[in-house]
Write a protein that binds this DNA or RNA. Structure first.
Lengths: 69, 69
DNA sequence: TTATATTGTCAAGCTTACTTTACATTTTAT
DNA sequence: ATAAAATGTAAAGTAAGCTTGACAATATAA
C-alpha cells in the first residue's frame, strides 16, 4: 500500500514530532508509516484523514494485489 | 467505530461464509466485524470497499472520541 | 564550525486484528 | 417436526500495528 503521509505532513508544514503529538501516536509510528514499514490501523488512517481534511483514499492507495496481506 | 458490514453484505445477498471467502479472511473475522468486536485492518477495509463498490467511509463511521484507541 | 532540530535505526515488549477448531444456537426449508 | 443452512460463542495461537528508549545520522541555523 502506497501512502502520501509524508507529502501531506510537509504540505501542512509539520514535523514528524508535531504530527505524532496531534495524532496521539509515537513518532516511531509516523516514521514507520512514511517509510512504508507497515500499514496504519483504520483508526490511525481516520485520524490522519480528519487532520489532513481529506479521505482515507486520498492518503492511502490500495493496490489490488497486495503481497503484504 | 460503527460499521455497515452486515447491511452491505445482506444488500448483496451474501452469507458470512461467502463474504469471508471473497475477502480471503475467516468467517470469524466477519462475525467479529459485524458484532463490532474489533476494527478491521485498513487492508480489510479496502477489500470490503472494493467488493461493495463504495468508500471506506461509507462502511465505517469513525467517531472522533473513540475510546477503543 | 558548532549547536540544535529533525529524521532515522534497532530491539524488546504490548495490544489487537485475525486464524483455527470445535461446538452451540437460530433461521429457513422441506 | 426434522434437517440443513446460517449465525454465534469460546479459547488458544499467530501476525501485525504501536510503544518506549536509547542512540546514530542528516539537515538547518547561528
Amino acid at each position: 500500500m502506497k501512502n502520501y503521509v509524508r507529502d501531506k505532513r510537509m504540505s501542512f508544514g509539520m514535523t514528524q514530532d508535531e504530527l505524532s503529538e496531534k495524532l496521539d501516536v509515537s513518532r516511531q509510528t509516523i516514521i514507520s508509516l512514511e517509510k512504508g514499514k507497515y500499514n496504519p490501523s483504520i483508526n490511525l488512517a481516520f485520524k490522519l484523514s480528519k487532520l489532513f481534511k481529506c479521505t482515507i483514499e486520498d492518503i492511502f492507495i490500495y493496490e489490488e494485489d497486495e503481497k503484504d496481506v
